[in-house]
C-alpha cells in the first residue's frame, strides 16, 4: 500500500501542493480530477520525484522517502517502484517501440536481452502493436505512441502506476484506443493513480475519485457518490462545467 503524508510543493510564493495526505490500497484505482493548474500533475510528479517535493513523506511498501532528507539512492528506489505514463508519451526517440519497453528491463532491472525481448513482445501483442515493434516513435501515430508509453509502464511491473492525462495531447481519433487499453490495464487491478479529464472513463474504472482544487484534496469518494452527489460546492460547480 501507498501512504502519502503532508506532500507540499511550492514555486516561489505559489503553493502548488498544499500538504496532501493520500492512502492508496494495493490494487486500488484512483482517479484525480479538477480544474487546470490545481496541482494534479504536480502531485503525480512529486510522488516519483520528477519534481522534488519541498515537504512530505511517501511510503511504498517498506520504502519510506522523506523530502527533508531524501538521498539519491532512495529517490532511485522510489522510481523503481513506480511507473509513469506521460501526457506527451515521452518515448525514447532513439529507441524502437520494442526497445522502449526493454530499455529499463535491461538497464534498470538487469534482465537479459532475451528475457526482456520476450516480455516486450508479449506486451506488444497485448497492446496490439506487435507489427510496429521495430518502428521508431517518430513513425508512430499519437495513439500508438501512447499505447507504447503504457506498455513501457506495464513492463516495469511497478507497485504503482502514475498516469498523467494520457489522452490530453491526443487527436480525438486516437483517444478511444488509449482509453480502451487503460481500461484493460485497470481490469487487472493494477494499482493506479490517474489524472484525467475523461469523466466517463473515470466513472467506469475508478474505485475512488478525488477532486482537487488549489493544491488540496477537496473531496473524494466512490465515483457514483462524487459524480452524482458531490458534497462540496466547488466539486459541484466543476462537474457542471465539464459536463
Amino acid at each position: 500500500m501507498i501512504r502519502i503524508r503532508g506532500l507540499t510543493k511550492r514555486y516561489g510564493a505559489n503553493t502548488v501542493l498544499d500538504a496532501i495526505d493520500l492512502d492508496i490500497e494495493a490494487g486500488e484505482r484512483v482517479v484525480i480530477i479538477g480544474p487546470s493548474g490545481t496541482g494534479k500533475s504536480t502531485l503525480l510528479r512529486c510522488v516519483n520525484y520528477l519534481d522534488r517535493p519541498d515537504i512530505g513523506v511517501i511510503r511504498i511498501g517498506d520504502l519510506t522517502v522523506d523530502a527533508a532528507k531524501a538521498r539519491p539512492a532512495e529517490i532511485l528506489a522510489l522510481r523503481r517502484r513506480t511507473a509513469f505514463v506521460f501526457q506527451n508519451y515521452s518515448l525514447f526517440a532513439n529507441r524502437t517501440a520494442r526497445e522502449n519497453i526493454t530499455e529499463a528491463l535491461i538497464t534498470v532491472q538487469g534482465k537479459s536481452r532475451e528475457e526482456a525481448d520476450a516480455r516486450a513482445d508479449a506486451i506488444l501483442l497485448d497492446i496490439g502493436l506487435a507489427d510496429r515493434a521495430n518502428a521508431y516513435p517518430a513513425a508512430l501515430s499519437g495513439g500508438q505512441q501512447q499505447r507504447i508509453g503504457i506498455g513501457r509502464a506495464m513492463a516495469l511491473d511497478a507497485g504503482l502506476m502514475l498516469i498523467d492525462e494520457p489522452t490530453s495531447a491526443l487527436d480525438p481519433e486516437w483517444v478511444g484506443e488509449v482509453l480502451d487499453l487503460m481500461r484493460r490495464v485497470a481490469e487487472r487491478r493494477q494499482t493506479m493513480l490517474i489524472v484525467t479529464h475523461e469523466m466517463q472513463f473515470a466513472r467506469e474504472i475508478a474505485d475512488r475519485v478525488i477532486f482537487m482544487d488549489g493544491g488540496r484534496i477537496v473531496e473524494q469518494g466512490p465515483p457514483a457518490q462524487l459524480f452524482d452527489a458531490p458534497r462540496d460546492k466547488r466539486t459541484e460547480s466543476f462537474l457542471r462545467r465539464v459536463r
Binding site: 516519483n48 520528477l50 532511485l76 522510481r79 523503481r80 513506480t82 511507473a83 509513469f84 506521460f86 506527451n88 515521452s90 518515448l91 525514447f92 526517440a93 532513439n94 529507441r95 530499455e103 529499463a104 538497464t107 534498470v108 513501457r152 516495469l156
Partner: peptide, 21 residues
Amino acid sequence: RSQWEAAQAVGMTQTQSMRRI
C-alpha cells in the same frame, strides 16, 4: 527535457540516462 524525464521515471541513474538516451 521529456527524454530526461522519461529516463529518470523508469529508474535510470543520471549516468545511464546520459549514456543511453
